[in-house]
């Protein structure tokens, strides 16, 4: 296969995954959330159980008027949704789907790159918050910044634990080194990573920066139309990315029966299962207050992840 064709296939595959998976997760959220609340969710769009609801939403968003607030910093205001969305696209590049190099871009420092790029989300939050010229946006943005910076630490520490266990920073390398008993050994780190990841993508119960009952819609208050759709898409890609990273780092990625042929299926199944859990959390739990949010981060997640590091080192040096 010539280089250009190889590149084209990889880029197209990543773009398709980037656009399709969030829609599937979004539709699942509509339906799962509805049934958990005794409703049926969208039923009309697309005739069969509202399967085309998000497509219809997309069409609606495109038609909307492009509104800027009067005092807004237009350039930054326009750039913020792209900045929110783009890092996730880069992260999708590095996530291994199956064995034998079934990954868009095999990187030796994959984990390092992923964590660095995920940390970029705070910039988008601050950009949209400040450029909106709206006090609710600003409050939401500052809450978001405090939350994202705080939860970055347990996220990185938990990921560091599994990287130490595997002895590599490459994401496919970590999956190759993974053994089933790591499920117990790395369980605390996995939990910390998952919870911190939820906070990183501002999903409920960690949606204090958005908090629609007190801050209108946080840093997204002034956004409409396509830009708002980008923020929403970023949220759903965020679900996929956090679920995929947890799968790859802690649940053994493509490991499962017939992993050689069906590895990609196992990865996708685990990703969807974790996405379901994320939706489930949203339906079940009320929003954490700002102080509870910070307490959970600094008094629970950070100590647990540090203890996990010690445990990892101890087990690693013994075996």
């Amino acid at each position: 296969m010539p280089l250009w064709l190889d590149l084209l296939v990889r880029v197209v595959a990543v773009m398709v995954a980037f656009l399709v998976l969030p829609l599937v997760v979004g539709q699942a959220e509509h339906k799962v959330m509805a049934h958990m609340q005794g409703r049926v969710g969208p039923m009309y769009a697309g005739a069969f159980h509202g399967w085309a609801q998000l497509v219809a939403d997309g069409v609606k968003f495109v038609q909307k008027e492009d509104v800027h607030p009067h005092g807004a910093d237009r350039t930054v205001f326009r750039l913020a949704p792209i900045v929110a969305l783009f890092p996730y696209l880069l992260v999708v590049l590095t996530i291994p789907l199956g064995p034998h190099g079934l990954v868009a871009q095999r990187l030796d420092i994959g984990l390092f790159l992923v964590l660095a790029i995920l940390g970029f989300g705070v910039v988008a939050v601050l950009m949209s918050a400040w450029a909106s010229a709206n006090k609710y946006s600003l409050l939401g943005g500052l809450r978001g910044a405090a939350q994202l910076l705080g939860y970055e630490l347990p996220l990185v520490l938990a990921a560091a634990s599994v990287a130490m266990a595997a002895g590599t920073l490459s994401l496919p390398g970590i999956v190759e080194a993974w053994r089933p008993w790591w499920l117990i050994w790395q369980a605390p780190a996995g939990l910390v990573f998952f919870v911190a990841g939820l906070a990183e993508i501002r999903r409920p119960p960690f949606d204090m920066p958005i908090a629609d009952s007190e801050l209108v819609f946080g840093y997204m208050t002034e956004y409409t139309g396509l830009r708002f759709a980008f923020f929403l898409l970023a949220e759903y890609v965020g679900i996929v990315v956090i679920a995929a990273l947890t799968t790859v780092l802690f649940l053994g990625g493509w490991h499962g029966p017939f992993a050689d042929q069906l590895g990609w299926l196992w990865t996708l199944l685990k990703v969807f299962a974790l996405s379901f859990v994320i939706i489930w959390f949203r339906v079940s739990y009320p929003r954490l207050r700002e102080d509870q949010l910070q307490r959970l981060c600094w008094l629970v997640l950070v100590p647990v992840s540090l203890a996990q590091l010690v445990l990892t080192v101890a087990v690693k040096s013994l075996t």
Partner: peptide, 21 residues
């Protein structure tokens, strides 16, 4: 309490919905 909350939503999901079309 956290487990109970998850159980309630999961149980509701398996039940028939109350929506009237």
């Amino acid at each position: 309490g956290l487990i109970n909350g998850l159980a309630v939503t999961l149980r509701t999901m398996t039940r028939k919905t109350t929506t009237q079309q």
